[in-house]
Design a protein around this nucleic acid. Sequence first.
DNA 1: GCCACCGCACAACCACCGGTTGTGCGGTTA
DNA 2: TAACCGCACAACCGGTGGTTGTGCGGTGGC
Lengths: 303, 303
Amino acid sequence: MRTFVAAADAGRFQDAATDLSVTQQAVSKRIAGLEKSLGVRLFTRTARGAKLTVDGQAFLPHARDLLRAAARAAASVRPGRRALRVDVIGRRLAPADVVRDFHRAHPGIGLDVVTLFDADAAVAAVRSGDIDASFRAVTMPGRQLPDDVAAVRAFDEPVQLLTGPAHPLADAGAVTPERLAGRRIWMPGIVPGTEWAAYYDDLAAAFGLTIEVTGPDFGTEPLLDTLAGSDSLATFVGEQTRLSAPAGHGLRRIAVRDPAPVYPHSLVWHRDNPHPALAALREHLRCGRFAHSAPGTWTPAWA
Amino acid sequence: MRTFVAAADAGRFQDAATDLSVTQQAVSKRIAGLEKSLGVRLFTRTARGAKLTVDGQAFLPHARDLLRAAARAAASVRPGRRALRVDVIGRRLAPADVVRDFHRAHPGIGLDVVTLFDADAAVAAVRSGDIDASFRAVTMPGRQLPDDVAAVRAFDEPVQLLTGPAHPLADAGAVTPERLAGRRIWMPGIVPGTEWAAYYDDLAAAFGLTIEVTGPDFGTEPLLDTLAGSDSLATFVGEQTRLSAPAGHGLRRIAVRDPAPVYPHSLVWHRDNPHPALAALREHLRCGRFAHSAPGTWTPAWA
DNA sequence: GCCACCGCACAACCACCGGTTGTGCGGTTA
DNA sequence: TAACCGCACAACCGGTGGTTGTGCGGTGGC
């Protein structure tokens, strides 16, 4: 591809060869090979050089696109000046939407989204410079952030109840946390010690809920299946969380109000990170349309 | 790249190897080579397979982009279902703007822009299927379109006068064609027999202008230089034509009115071409914002 | 807790890809 | 008409990239 673009720009295989520091014969063989693999002629050979055919003209911008993509790919892992690398807890959860929104607002800023194993790995990666920022609720109790790591409350996401169609609350427009006392809230896969566990522990304690974290996590699909077929099980889910096929299961999302529990997503970054896009991201969060904690909402005391 | 994406998707080099019909050792060597050339580790090897590192996660979408670009490039020259291929007479002239505008209106439609040697080559390419459409003024006298080729008047582009700052008309807001009688209109590079020659011949005859087509064509740069330094030379230029550096030369564009000569760009295509995007392009031209001939404009009788 | 198994890496080997030099041919130019 | 320019073909050869064979470490069953 590089040889093709060079030859198209130079107009002569000879000049392209000197540009690429190879012989003219090598360029000729490369172009011939490319033409053979594509099945079309890309150049018309003349006595004064080589001119693009119609196919070659159509191919050229795509070849340039490919070289640009290759350059971007190489730059994405080059230490030093590279795209902003942000860790989100899951591609279908609210932080991913925030990053998408940021990308729409600043299309020119290169952005790479990754997902680390847990909050500890995220903080370590932020400290080491492997990533530039992370959306993790690292404000949970017992966790002390290192001095060189900063965190701000980024945005609050309301928590909703998810039930099957046969659940007693399925047709309730909204419920209060108190009405959930005594009901079975089932949240398999919550790993003890993580920020999620701390949040739901506090939520349960505050309103007298009983949250079952028992049972192995078989993934979201079986969870939703079980939920859809049960008349007593319910689970909590973030308002912006996209489920795989909510309509197919007949699942219901029920708002929780008075007070509305919100999950405090926060942004973590390294104080010394000079990446200009990091400042833009923080500014975007500060001025964005994302709801911050308001009257009538509930968050854990440590938030 | 393909191996990297396959390994990332499969989560195991072994499975990726079977997908690619090579041995596990080959995949291992390919990944190792890619990692060496990039200078970073892309996978963490575990006993149960290989998981992406942070760098690998960041690299993956770029690798997918690259493969998509490669697929698009290959498709651009594959006979059969491919992007709409349109011939424009020059990337800086009005037809190119029309194509750009069409692309903005229909971002999903693949589009390849090429420039053929002359109108004859364009018609031949349209007949052979090498291109799907061409913006050429093939309505000139003496040229008979084949039966299987259709053409419509696509849009009219006003013709302007281009002069240096010392020209007597430099500060005129607009001129009539009659006022140009006797002045030197210099248009080198107009090849006799082409549609441009026919147009300006008719224009000269209609208003008694004297158009000099003498002199070799050294390209637009020397033309603009000569024009900028002359107090008697002027040339015609399309209203939408982008010049290389008009401000740097102090050149003036002067509208021509009462009547305003307009150049009749037309679209040529093959009657049997079933490409759906071709219909979209024709519809775009029919309903677009491009001025068609209006009262007070002049076109050749054959237009 | 031991052992079998699974998956990746390293070593040796080899075919072929892709580079080089040398040469021929067609077309343009003086 | 002859010299020149630029690309293609031929022969040659080194290195890349594939294969088979094997070792090693971590996981999971019994």
